[in-house]
Amino acid sequence: MTDLTPDQKARQAWLSLLAKSPPAALAEHCDALGTLPDHTWLQPPETGAVMVRGRTGGTGAPFNLGEMTVTRCALTLETGEVGHGYVQGRDKSHAQRAAVVDALMQTDRANEVRRAVLTPLETAMIAAKSARAEKAAATKVDFFTMVRGED
């Protein structure tokens, strides 16, 4: 794909965050936005499979590793913005919320949505990731050499 515009990059980042978010957390943060705006479906939520690929030797030719479940949808707000929802798993309301957030991020409520939904999701994701990394770091071996034999 060609180089992305800053707007596309920003959207790519929030869509990626929404896709990986835990359904319960997204639902909770969306509650803070009040009643979700009315919308019409361009594509109602649909669960399907994405074939995930790997590479031979980690860096070589692509091969099919296996599938994962993904749910997607697309909708339009009454004000015309189009929102896409792509989330891991089979939760249709999760995909719907992701699409609504995507659409709202293109309106003048973007800052409010970022504050109420995206920032807390991101903070929680970073915290969870670093908590795991710290546990892994605690299992890192510190080798030391025993000197033996006659001095």
Partner: peptide, 18 residues
């Protein structure tokens, strides 16, 4: 992270992690 091209968007996003 698992990344996929989304044709409707014209770019790729992470669709999940495993």
């Amino acid at each position: 992270a698992v990344e996929m091209d989304i044709s409707a968007l014209g770019f790729s996003i992470d669709i999940g992690e495993m």
